[in-house]
């Protein structure tokens, strides 16, 4: 299995790059999780649109 250290490190960098922006952090982690679980084999547009819709709304509300 890919090292937990790698996953942990990616999370750390995302948190660092999107500091104080939890919806953005959550969105990117959710997208990564989806990509890793499906290996990108399925239609992505619908899922991406849905997730952008969901998290951007949360993001806008938190402003």
């Amino acid at each position: 299995m890919p090292s937990m250290n790698i996953t942990k490190k990616i999370s750390e960098i995302i948190k660092e790059q999107a500091s104080n922006d939890e919806p953005l952090q959550e969105f990117i982690l959710a997208i990564i999780k989806w990509e890793l679980s499906t290996k990108g084999a399925f239609q992505f547009k619908e899922n991406y649109r849905q997730m952008i819709k969901q998290y951007s709304s949360k993001w806008e509300d938190g402003k």
Binding site: I14, Q17, A18, D21, L24, F27, I28, I31, I52, K53, Y55, S56, S57, W59, E60
Partner: peptide, 13 residues
């Protein structure tokens, strides 16, 4: 809002 959010996410990635 979705465009700005998507751009920000892309930049972070």
């Amino acid at each position: 809002c979705q465009i700005v959010f998507g751009n920000k996410a892309s930049s972070v990635v």
